[in-house]
Simulated assay, not measured.
Amino acid sequence: MRRSDNKYVDGNEDATVYHIAIKDIKPNPYQPRKTFDEESLVDLADSIKQHGILQPIVLRQTVKGYHIVVGERRYRAAQIAGLSELPAIVKQLTESEMMELAIIENLQREDLNAMEEAESYAKLMHDLNMTQQEVAKRLSKSRSYVANMLRLLNLPQPIAKMIREEKISGAHGRTLLAMKDVHKMKRLAKKVAQEKWSVRYLERYIADHKVNQKVETSSKRAQSKPQFIRKQERQLKEQYGTQVSISTRNQKGQITFEFTSEAEFKRLIRQLNNDQLF
């Protein structure tokens, strides 16, 4: 390690920049990012060859050398470029601080997809024992935003993979969660990707599907009733001017009158008080 004469502004303070041998630097064991685009690394390596490292990486010194806190992509590109040392700022950090900085740096990536973002929030909560509210406050997000992103972790793996590959968006994924049948959800996700559906179109499709499913279920339930029960339902509907349902089970039953407003409710009560059903 050799000290540079240069200073780098880190927050509100000047930080000393050291030149650290690349062989002494190790990747961050808490790095949530598992894959790095090789083509973009090569592009960055070409830029480094031409302009050098414009921003020092941040390291934490350990008994085994130096661990990267911030700047693993620059470290990998510098290796490709053939550099033997890197400009770095060495910070005194705890394990928890190192873990948190690695996750926060990952969240600041421009190419971060929705699944990676959701996994980073979950990792902060699990590894650092944070609540959703604490994660939201630390990252200047609303708690509802964090909660909505975390819902993506409930998606089946094939759909999560589609979001990672940017075939569908995170918003598509959250909308698909309204489908309770996993097999139908997977089929619909493929259709969304193939036909390039907008999120709004998907929302309308699912809403219509639920309505149709409800009508179909009601129709099947009605058809399964004995004929004399269906006849009584029709008569009561005509008599009281509203939808009436009669259900029976184990020699017990229930008559349900439907109303859609307070005025309709009061009208029904008056009629029921004045009339005798049977």
Results as ranks from 00 to 15, higher is better:
126 H>K: 15
109 R>Q: 13
168 I>Y: 04
186 K>W: 03
139 L>V: 06
124 L>G: 02
101 L>R: 12
153 L>S: 12
110 E>T: 09
162 M>P: 07
160 A>H: 02
170 G>N: 06
108 Q>W: 02
164 R>L: 09
125 M>G: 09
181 D>L: 05
93 L>D: 03
202 L>D: 01
149 M>S: 10
166 E>L: 08
189 A>S: 12
188 L>N: 03
200 R>M: 06
124 L>C: 07
98 M>T: 07
140 S>T: 05
89 I>C: 03
110 E>V: 10
121 Y>E: 04
200 R>N: 11
131 T>C: 09
155 L>Q: 07
106 N>Q: 12
93 L>A: 10
93 L>H: 05
117 E>A: 14
133 Q>F: 04
104 I>D: 00
182 V>S: 11
116 E>T: 11
88 A>L: 02
167 K>L: 14
152 L>K: 03
201 Y>L: 10
191 K>M: 11
142 S>F: 07
193 A>C: 03
179 M>V: 13
158 P>Q: 14
102 A>E: 00
124 L>I: 08
166 E>Q: 15
91 K>S: 06
102 A>N: 02
160 A>V: 06
142 S>I: 06
122 A>F: 11
138 R>K: 15
97 E>T: 08
95 E>L: 07
117 E>P: 04
152 L>H: 04
139 L>G: 04
114 A>P: 00
128 L>Q: 03
150 L>G: 11
197 W>H: 11
175 T>H: 00
180 K>L: 13
178 A>N: 12
110 E>R: 13
171 A>C: 05
169 S>I: 01
105 E>S: 12
142 S>P: 04
105 E>D: 14
160 A>K: 13
119 E>N: 15
150 L>A: 13
138 R>S: 12
150 L>I: 15
158 P>Y: 12
184 K>Y: 10
190 K>H: 10
93 L>C: 08
181 D>E: 13
115 M>S: 04
137 K>Q: 10
112 L>K: 15
125 M>A: 14
196 K>P: 00
206 I>T: 09
144 S>E: 09
137 K>F: 03
99 M>R: 01
